[in-house]
Design a protein around this nucleic acid. Structure first.
Lengths: 201, 201
DNA sequence: TGTATATATCACCACTTGGTGACATATATT
DNA sequence: AATATATGTCACCAAGTGGTGATATATACA
């Protein structure tokens, strides 16, 4: 065997990722990570101090969720707010759907607080805001509220769908149903916006 | 000590409830339940067969979430659909907010499947539907989709708020913010419904 | 070449977990 | 009162957990 600390650290971080992705956050622990990485657990303590330290490093070094900004490039510059908002919500959901790791982290975040879930949560919060800030848009409070509620709803539906346990038979992973949902989302945001801009409070 | 099996069973079921409510579903286990109940764990096996059996009995015998139908009594008979739908969503969320046990079960359901989470999930699904069925209302698909997404969004926000970890500073547990959210929900459903009934597909 | 250090292995600790068999004793039945 | 059964206690098991100290060995540096 070669002795290469950076390689070993990588092995450990990768093992953690695989563990979360394929066995869920409940499977995470010092012994499990060491086993998965094929190294002695004492190396985890040596290089990361503790499980907390490992989670922190993982949160900092791994790409936990892709930026949403670049998913909006096909939106023309003068697009109305409701289109942008809908697009952000929908693309955010699609990205989550594609990433079992991110799904597990969202779920973990609802269960427990640790360096990883906290950092991940902050990152996720910033995604949509950045996409808007990039375009110099400052949305009013109610519009944000609606978008967030819709976004959270989609996140919840995606989490529920994971174990073939969809909510109300609304299985986001099925293409036709996803299209239905996305159409309703767009229609809803537009309808709200049309009514709202007349009297935004 | 008196020897009373029904009392012991009750002790065990109560212990499980307290454990879930005050220490979260991750704390649930044979040893933990026995400890909390102050009885020997062998009695759990004797009376419920296994942890699974205990969860099943718990799901069947405990009142996991209050019916939502009786929360709608102050709604007049001829109320338009959008008002009823909004009321159901909002009352559902308020009920969840009041029940830490239900919150934990919702979270558990996203993490793992077991007799308790499955039964609880089915019960939750039926709540809104029953409220509508009681009034002889058969909503169209898109309206259901919107209501479900909004409802799920509120559930998610409530779960996130539990550990002082609110999403985007939208803390459902704060009265003023809750009122904002509820207002947006009502406004949204009405706006969608107004547009939608003209072209329900 | 010899030596120090970074890296990795191994053995062990106390504690918790789910699970079971042997036993004691209160209660009910005959 | 004698017996059977329901109920409860105890001791134990193998396996897993987080965590640590002692030791081996590859690599780098003198």
């Amino acid at each position: 065997m070669h002795r290469n600390s950076v390689e070993t650290k990588k092995k450990i971080l990768d093992a953690l990722e695989n563990l979360i992705t394929y066995h869920g956050f409940t499977a995470v622990g010092i012994n499990a990570v060491a086993r998965e990485a094929g190294i002695d657990k004492v190396l985890i303590y040596r290089y990361f101090g503790s499980m907390e330290g490992l989670l922190k490093s993982f949160a900092e070094e791994k790409e936990l969720c892709p930026s949403v900004s670049n998913l909006l490039i096909d939106l023309h510059d003068g697009a109305p707010f409701h289109e942008i908002a809908a697009k952000i919500v929908i693309e955010h959901a699609r990205a989550l759907q594609k990433s079992p790791l991110a799904q597990e982290l969202v779920c973990w975040e609802l269960t427990e607080q640790n360096p990883l879930t906290v950092l991940f949560g902050k990152e996720m919060e910033q995604r949509g805001l950045n996409a808007l800030a990039d375009r110099g848009i400052v949305p009013d409070k109610d519009s944000v509220t609606l978008s967030v509620v819709l976004l959270c709803g989609l996140q919840y539906l995606i989490l529920r769908g994971r174990n073939n346990n969809p909510m109300m038979n609304i299985d986001y992973s099925q293409a036709e149903i996803r299209e239905d949902i996305e159409r309703v989302i767009s229609k809803t945001i537009k309808a709200f916006y049309d009514v709202h801009e007349g009297s935004p409070n």
